[in-house]
Amino acid sequence: MTVAQGVRRAFDGREVLAGVDLTIREGEFVALLGRSGSGKSTLLRAMAGLDPEIGGQLLVPRRRSVVFQDPRLQPWKRVLDNVVIGLPRQGARERGRAALAEVGLAAHERAWPATLSGGEAQRAALARALVREPELLLLDEPFGALDALTRIRMHALLRELCAKHRPAVLLVTHDVDEAILLADRVLVLTDGRIGLAREVRLEGARQRTDPAFAELRGDLLAELGVADGS
C-alpha cells in the first residue's frame, strides 16, 4: 500500500501541493492528470524519495523505481550494463537479460544507447525499472517524447508488463486518452489537491469508440478546464 497524507510543497512562497491525500493499492494502476505546473511531477518526485523538503506523511514501499520522459541511459555503458546498474553483482546480468527479453530488446544487450531509437531507449529504461521488481512503479510522462505509433506500442507493452509484475503504478501524464487507456483510476490534481477521481472499471471504457470512453474523457477535460471538441 502506498499512502500520501496531507502532502505539501512550496517553491518561493507558492504552494504547489496543498495537502494532497492519495492511496494506491497493491497492483493498482493510477494515472494523475493536471495542468502544467500543477504539481504532478512534484508529487511523483516526493514518492520517489527525491525531495527532502516535502511536508506531510508518505508511506511508500522500499522497492520503488522511476521511469522519466528522458530515458536517462548512461551513454558510456552498453544497454545491459545500464539495465543492471546498481544491482548486486550476483545474478544481475541474468536478471538484466530476462528484463530486456520482456521488453523486446534481447538482441540489443551490447548496443550503445546512442544507437537506439527513442522507443527502444524507453524500453531499456522500463527494463531497468522492472528488473528491480518494484512494489511501486513511478512513471513521469514516459511516452511524452515518442511518436504516436510508438506510444501505442508502448501502451500495450506497459499493460502487459504491469499485469505480469503487479506493481502499484502512478503515471503522471498530460494525455487524457492515455490515462483512460492505461489506468484503473484517473485523478486530477487541481489547486494543489486531488480535485476529481474516476474509476475505469469497465473494459468498454478503454475503447475510444465506446460511449463510456467519451463520457469519461469529457469529465476529465472539464475538470482540466478544456472543452471537449472531439
Rank of each mutant, 00 (worst) to 15 (best):
V3S: 13
A10G: 15
E15W: 03
E15T: 06
V16R: 09
V16F: 09
L17T: 10
G19K: 01
V20L: 00
D21A: 05
D21P: 01
R25P: 10
E28P: 03
A31G: 04
R35T: 07
K40L: 05
T42K: 14
T42G: 13
L44A: 09
R45Y: 15
R45E: 01
M47P: 03
M47H: 03
L50F: 06
I54Y: 10
G56A: 05
V60H: 01
V66R: 08
F68W: 15
Q69Y: 08
D70E: 14
Q74N: 12
L80N: 05
D81P: 12
N82G: 07
G86Y: 10
P88G: 02
Q90N: 13
A99F: 02
A101E: 14
E102K: 10
A106N: 07
H108Q: 13
H108R: 04
E109A: 12
G119M: 03
E120T: 14
R123K: 10
R128C: 08
L130D: 06
P134T: 04
L137C: 10
L139A: 00
L146F: 02
L149F: 11
R159E: 02
A163N: 01
K164P: 08
H165D: 01
R166M: 02
P167W: 08
V169L: 00
V169P: 01
V172G: 03
H174L: 11
D177H: 12
A179V: 05
D184Q: 00
L187I: 08
L187D: 03
L189S: 07
R201W: 08
R206E: 05
Q207C: 14
R208K: 12
R208T: 12
F213N: 11
E215L: 01
R217I: 07
G218F: 02
L220S: 01
L221C: 02
A222M: 14
E223R: 12
L224Q: 05
G225R: 13
A227M: 12
A227N: 14
G229S: 14
S230L: 15
